[in-house]
């Protein structure tokens, strides 16, 4: 499966929360911020592979549940001084439907 796929409605993702999408490329975490932006990242922390989807979302950042690294939702980059990238997926919203681009 590749290209844009519709995955769920905006309201299927809790505000300041996330959902996990099961894909051929592994689990993808979809995050929803307080201002209803939606971001997609590999559900794998660059530190030791923690499931980012299970973290606490704040601003445009998620804190990994295992050891507290902060990962930027827009680019998947760890917030300094930590270094690493979780790999991001393009996401767009269309009339409250969430679309995800798979490569």
């Amino acid at each position: 499966m590749s290209g844009w796929v519709k995955v769920c409605g905006l309201n299927d993702i809790p505000m300041l929360g996330s959902r996990v999408v099961d894909s051929a490329q592994g689990n993808i975490a979809l995050f929803r911020t307080a201002d209803d932006k939606v971001f997609g990242l590999h559900d794998k922390c660059p530190h030791k592979g923690g499931p980012l989807s299970q973290g606490i979302v704040h601003g445009d950042t998620v804190t990994c549940p295992l050891h507290g690294w902060k990962i930027g939702l827009a680019d998947g980059q760890a917030v300094a001084p930590d270094q690493g990238c979780a790999g991001r997926f393009e996401v767009r919203l269309e009339a409250d439907a969430v679309w995800l681009k798979l490569s």
Partner: peptide, 9 residues
């Protein structure tokens, strides 16, 4: 977990 359902864009 959300399972993917293919929809052509």
């Amino acid at each position: 977990v959300i399972k993917l359902v293919e929809v052509t864009a």
